[in-house]
């Protein structure tokens, strides 16, 4: 959650939600959560596990960055 919330601090368009998986089985089913931490961006991009900052930021922004960025 740390890097996601740091991204939210940086940009007013970004929201970061930590979801306690065991308490929300409906969301776990909807996003097919098989392990944690799992990050879901805009219901499309999925990131499994923890990543170092540069990789996490690029993965979260995968669909927003120009291909050569």
């Amino acid at each position: 959650m740390s890097l996601a919330q740091r991204m939210a601090i940086e940009n007013p368009h970004i929201t970061a939600v930590a979801v306690e998986a065991t308490e929300f089985p409906d969301l776990v089913r909807r996003y097919r959560i098989n392990g944690v931490p799992k990050t879901v961006v805009d219901d499309r991009v999925e990131i499994l596990g923890s990543l170092p900052e540069p990789d996490f930021v690029r993965s979260v922004l995968a669909e927003r960055l120009p291909k050569d960025a």
Binding site: H13, I14, T15, V57, L61, R64
Partner: peptide
């Protein structure tokens, strides 16, 4: 570097991080 990339976001971006206690 991260901040420069993040600054380029101009539309809503929703990040959900699933965790356990």
């Amino acid at each position: 570097e991260s901040r420069a990339l993040i600054a380029a976001v101009t539309e809503p971006l929703h990040i959900q991080v699933f965790v356990t206690p």
